[in-house]
Amino acid sequence: MRVLIVDDSVVMRKIVEQALRRAGLDLGEALHAANGVEGLAALEKTSTEGGLLDLVLCDLHMPVMDGLDFLLEKRRRNLAPNVPVLMITAESGDPELLKAMNAGAQGQLSKPFTLEQMQRSVTSVLHHAA
């Protein structure tokens, strides 16, 4: 599985990558982006150079470009339309989450999360995208 992790926190990007590996999700390559702008650039690059992604894990609140705007722009530009997005948020009741789901996110995962929760969320998103 090849993923893109979009989060302004280096620590959280490492935590997410480690969790994906430890949850037994057969992670191959994990690309990292620090905000929505970098995330879109990564999607463009993988679309043009090949090596399509299987999943994007994206933080909701980020500087420069947040998760909601990332989703809206991804949809507007038709970037990687078949690659599902799992939103990661520190707040389970965040009203922005509903907007993100309406903007095209396929699932959400709240921090803090267990490995089991990570596994369930990723499996569910990939299953629905298949």
């Binding site: 520190a90 389970s92 709240s110 803090p112």
Partner: peptide, 10 residues
């Protein structure tokens, strides 16, 4: 701080 604030607010 992010997780504490978010967890409390939730």
């Amino acid at each position: 701080c992010n997780m504490i604030a978010g967890g409390w607010k939730s």
